[in-house]
Amino acid sequence: MPPKGRIEVNELLCKGCELCVGACPQKVIALDMDRITPKGYHPASLISDGCTGCGICAVVCPEAAITVFRETIKVRANQ
């Protein structure tokens, strides 16, 4: 089973360019059309489970707005 991960998007920085949406290998990122940032964009967010914490969204993010977390090896060993 792949590791579980999650991302946090800084909504003050995100401009909704969708580069992370196109790059996500698991296709679990999309723009959140129910939210709007102070700059007036729809921010990127996780839409479903399946994030592995690979960090590719953070590699392509031009605003460095994404922080990526992944579960530790200890947690995985206990599963």
Binding site: K15, Y41, V68
Partner: peptide, 21 residues
């Protein structure tokens, strides 16, 4: 959890004027 990636310290914590993308 472990941290995989965070914003580098050498960038100021502010939004840029660049166009989206």
């Amino acid at each position: 959890e472990q941290l995989v990636y965070e914003r580098p310290d050498s960038l100021v914590d502010c939004a840029t004027h660049y166009c989206p993308g």
